[in-house]
Simulated assay, not measured.
Amino acid sequence: MGTGEAAKEYVAGFAAGLAMVITGHPFDTIKVKLQAHNTTTNQKVYKNALHCASRILIDEGIRGLYRGASSSFIGMSIESSVFFGTYSLMKSFFQGTNVDGQPQLQVILPSAGCSGALISGILCPTELVKVRGIFRGGVATLMREAIGNSVFFGSYEFSRYWMHLHMDSIPGIEKNRILNDIGIGIVSGGFSGIAFWTAVMPIDVAKTIIQTAPDMNSSRNPFQVISLVYRKSGLRGCYAGLGPTLARAFPANAAAIVTWEYTAKLLDIRRE
């Protein structure tokens, strides 16, 4: 992949990040509040995601749902640019000249892992603008991104390939190619976002607790924190905020994937 082609990949990723923040930031705000307040005490502050959202709207209005959005626009756009751009570059590197369109785990997993590890250095400080501290929870963020992005891109590549493979066999499909591509992007992107968070939610809960802990000397080991949460709140505590997170994951990631794919087409990026 040449320099010009690589630059286009980063631009496409930047556009995807903007789409993701616009679509998903309110859900993320609710998730953080649920994780921060419903796992550290025996008494729940919020009954559920709807109760949390209504409290925010009553106390702060619509602006409360977009609290920290300015930093998220910057952070998510840069993250997404690095995320998608690095993944595409690493995928091209590991794939080499063997391009037949069929997803390969030996290409997807190292590419996604490298991309996730790299963006964790961006995500940790930008996410902490909404909570507190700098680089607290860095290990948990690294784990979440490396593991989660491997699941994300694996789910995306295989579901996208499968849907294209079966839809291309339908007679007359070319008449609605644009709509079909958008539909595939929505389903593959939304499904992959759900797979990401389902896989790494306990790590994300640990990250939020580490970053919001009032005691600066409290444990920063994500495994210890997950164990503590499990003993105190059970499996439900380990998946605190899962509802709004999954509600956000589908539309936000669907928007990101569709934007990424179509920006790539507008920039004439060559893909299999």
Rank of each mutant, 00 (worst) to 15 (best):
S71Q: 10
L267K: 15
A195F: 02
F135E: 02
R55V: 06
L57V: 10
H25T: 11
G116W: 02
W162K: 13
C124F: 03
H25A: 05
Y230N: 13
M163Q: 15
K175S: 08
T41L: 08
K265G: 08
F153P: 00
C52L: 05
G241E: 00
A199F: 10
I62G: 14
L179Y: 11
Q104A: 03
M216K: 15
D28T: 15
E5M: 04
K8V: 00
I22H: 14
E9V: 11
M143V: 10
G185K: 02
A255M: 03
L128G: 12
L18P: 10
M20T: 11
M20R: 12
H25M: 08
H166I: 11
L266F: 14
S88N: 10
E79M: 15
G4N: 14
T212W: 03
I56C: 04
P244F: 00
P110A: 00
M90R: 09
S111I: 00
N180E: 15
G24W: 02
R236A: 12
I184V: 06
Q102F: 01
E272W: 05
G101E: 01
Y46D: 10
G189F: 01
G154W: 00
F93S: 04
V32Q: 14
L118F: 13
D268R: 15
F223K: 02
Y230L: 10
N42K: 15
G113C: 14
N42H: 15
S111M: 01
H25Y: 08
R270A: 10
M216G: 15
M76F: 11
A7G: 13
E272N: 10
L89M: 15
A213P: 04
K44L: 12
I184D: 00
I269F: 03
F84V: 06
I134H: 07
Q211H: 07
E145L: 12
G121M: 05
M1L: 07
P214I: 02
A19M: 06
E261C: 12
W162V: 01
K44E: 14
G13E: 02
V258E: 03
S192W: 02
I194G: 11
G64I: 07
F153C: 01
E272G: 09
L142C: 08
L57D: 15
